[in-house]
C-alpha cells in the first residue's frame, strides 16, 4: 500500500471532467481532497491524498498524466524562507497536522513538509512572513 499527498494541476479543458472519479472506479484508489479550487487563469488545482496498492497508484498517476494533468508532490508548495524565519515557534500550535516541531535541544522549529497539507494557516500568522506558498 502507498499513500501520498500530491498537487494536481488541471488545464482549462479538463476542469469540468470527472477525472478523480475514475481513480476510484478503474484503479481502486482512495482519495481525500485536502483542497480544491479554480484559479483566475481557469486552471483547476487540487491537493489530494491518494492511496491504494502501489501498482494501482502508479497506473492511476499514469492515467492522470495521460489526460494532461500535471502532478507535483505537495512538499514543493509550502516552503519556509530560512533567512526570514526567526524560529519563534508561534506556528507550532496553529498547524493542524503538527508539521512544525520544536527541537528539544536547539529549540529551533523544524518544518516537516511531508506532514504539510497546504492549508496555509501558517502563511499569514507568521510574524516575519517566512512561510511561502509556491503554487
Amino acid at each position: 500500500m502507498v499513500s501520498k499527498r500530491i498537487v494536481l494541476h488541471f488545464p482549462h479543458r479538463l476542469v469540468n471532467q470527472p477525472i478523480v472519479y475514475k481513480l476510484v472506479e478503474e484503479y481502486d484508489l482512495q482519495f481525500n481532497i485536502l483542497k480544491a479550487f479554480v484559479t483566475p487563469e481557469e486552471e483547476g488545482l487540487m491537493v489530494l491524498e491518494l492511496g491504494g496498492k502501489r501498482e494501482n497508484f502508479d497506473k492511476g498517476v499514469e492515467y492522470l498524466q495521460s489526460c494532461g494533468v500535471k502532478i507535483q508532490p505537495l512538499s514543493h508548495d509550502v516552503v519556509r524562507n530560512e533567512t526570514k524565519c526567526t524560529n519563534c515557534g508561534v506556528c507550532v500550535p496553529i498547524c493542524p497536522t503538527e508539521a512544525f516541531v520544536v527541537d528539544k535541544k536547539t529549540r529551533k522549529v523544524i518544518f516537516n513538509d511531508k506532514k504539510c497539507i497546504a492549508c496555509e494557516l501558517c502563511i499569514k500568522i507568521c510574524p516575519p512572513r517566512a512561510m511561502e506558498v509556491h503554487f
Binding site: 507550532v92 536547539t106 529549540r107
Partner: peptide, 25 residues
Amino acid sequence: LRSGKIIIQGKEVPTGSLSSYPKAR
C-alpha cells in the same frame, strides 16, 4: 510552556512562543 503543552481548566493546550529562544541564545 516550553514542553509544548500546558493544562488549563483541565484541558491540554498546545503552546506557541512569540519570542525566539534560539535567537535569544
